[in-house]
Design a protein around this nucleic acid. Structure first.
Lengths: 194, 194
DNA sequence: TTTTTTTCGAATTATTTGGTCGAATGGTCG
DNA sequence: CGACCATTCGACCAAATAATTCGAAAAAAA
């Protein structure tokens, strides 16, 4: 017998590719089915709808980013390093996932609220994590921040700001490192105790 | 009043991009219309159908290749150079147009016979041009060929062989120069009088 | 064999899309 | 101005396509 989750995973993987290429609308169940070498109807044995598949893909992407962040943070030790590593890894990973986000953006997919829901879920998590780092930094006397909660939100928001479509359009490769540096500098100048 | 041909050209240009990205099937008239900032029905004022637009795009691509070839040939002087330049420019231009051909291939577009027709039309032209080069080369005693007509067909066919989809898949950039060299060598060894 | 899991073809329904048409809009020229 | 083109567009339709359902057939497990 086959592991159902394995099949689901392979569908998610394949679907991701096709979504990347054509976006949500232009991706058909037939294409997904053919790509995993199954009948169209078989897909419905694993997922209840096209939207369901898409949701799974988004969830997986978000989880991927999340685990990359967690790993990066856990590997650095002092708060300053943690924060730096967090920012760097976040941008790098997002950059890798850019394909997918590109595919999504522009499509009038906003009415699929679950995307926002998933994002929000992970956002809260992210903000919490960043806040923890900040708080520890304050305790260690490395950062001077009045309201760590607000600061965390600001940082995550700033990083999200770099995800805006425009950013990924053309300059990608070259511009990214510079922007990262300047962003990190900016954050640190305002945060680090001098 | 606007120049009708200008508008047509802009439609062709925009349509080309979208065809490239999504292929014929997945490209909708609405998209094309939106991209040129017109109503869908307005497009039909300039073109009679989606196929008609596509045909125009193909025609333009073919014409582009053709004029590139003519220019290259006219700039070289002796037959040997002409032939070499022809081969090089052909491959280079095709490489640039690869995007478009990629978009077309794989789609079951073969039932649109006009593609074959256009190709054939330009093929005949190309074969004729090559044959002229060869014949001059023979006159100049640079080439030794029994049947220039057959040889021309062979050469054009050989070059077309390099257009097969597989070729463009992955190795593109690196492999192309080598292949070109070897192809040219191959042609010349069999043709040039030693 | 019986039962359960998995697949699929055919049918159904919902949505999309190519294409038409007549009515606007707007500029041109007498 | 008003008659006359050129151009645009919204509303509409039929055909195509796509999502989803369903029952039955394989395949696997028990």
């Amino acid at each position: 017998m086959i592991d159902k989750d394995e099949v689901k995973d392979s569908i998610i993987g394949v679907a991701r590719q096709i979504f990347c290429k054509f976006g949500f609308r232009k991706t058909t169940m037939d294409e997904i089915a053919q790509a995993v070498r199954k009948g169209k109807s078989s897909i419905y044995y694993y997922f209840s709808s096209k939207e369901d598949i898409f949701q799974a893909v988004v969830e997986k992407e978000a989880a991927l980013l999340n685990s990359a962040l967690m790993k990066a943070i856990s590997e650095a030790d002092d708060p300053r390093e943690k924060l730096k590593s967090y920012v760097l890894v976040r941008m790098r990973t997002i950059s890798e996932l850019a394909n997918f986000y590109n595919a999504i953006k522009s499509e009038y997919l906003s009415h699929l609220e679950f995307i926002d829901q998933i994002r929000m879920k992970y956002d809260k998590n992210e903000i919490q994590v960043v806040e923890d780092i900040l708080r520890k930094g304050v305790e260690n006397n490395e950062f001077c921040i009045e309201d760590t909660s607000l600061a965390a939100i600001a940082i995550v928001t700033a990083l999200k700001g770099m995800e805006i479509p425009m950013f990924w359009e053309k300059d990608a490769e070259e511009g990214i490192e510079q922007r990262l540096d300047s962003l990190i500098n900016f954050l640190f100048y305002g945060i680090i105790k001098r």
